[in-house]
Amino acid sequence: MSNDRYGLLMDTSNIKMFIALCKNKEILVSKNLLFPRKQDELLVPEIKSLLLENEVNVKDLSFIGVGIGPGSFTGVRIAMAVAKTIAFALNLELFAIDSLMGYSNFNAPSIVIFNARSGRSYFACFDGLKSLMNSRIVSNEFALKFIEDHPNYVLRGDLRHLGLDVDTDVDAKSFLNYVSNQERVIDIKGLKPIYLKDL
């Protein structure tokens, strides 16, 4: 057996399905797919073909990196169910990151935003590993003001509900960088999504 560490990355917290395959610190392939309301059906088959195309067996994986929200409640649960199940079944290392972090750009100060509905946004601000503002829900007015006050920050995520024409993909390299800097999840069974909205 080789010492290569293969990893599978995924996030379905937003309208896009992000999946990527990496080998050691290199991204072999990544996809940002748009499947409105079909992530539940297509995540596993897409993972299957991604692995097949790259001739990697699921059992050769060493680790999984997953975005665990915030975002669409259902979407967050889809990637989490798949990631947790693979890690549990095959006894892989599991790394969980905030989905807003997953959409951030590792190499530039980033404001990351998703639509949280009802005039609100999921919001966070990162500079590399530094979290300038943790994930939270803010009013759209606050988000717009913050953007205006920080013209040097790159805008990431989906900002169309703010009237801005920004809808970025996940940058696989950044995602992997963030994943690599996380502690592995010890209690895989007990891992919970980040919702930021209580019931």
């Binding site: 539940d40 995540l43 596993v44 993972i47 299957k48 699921v58 059992k59 409640f73 259902t74 649960r77 889809i78 169910a81 798949v82 199940t85 693979i86 079944a89 095959l90």
Partner: peptide
């Protein structure tokens, strides 16, 4: 309930895929 069903679906699917 759709959201509830989805959790079972993803776990079953993932296992069927792995094995």
């Amino acid at each position: 309930l759709v959201g509830a069903l989805l959790v079972g679906l993803e776990v079953a699917k993932t296992l069927a895929f792995i094995y």
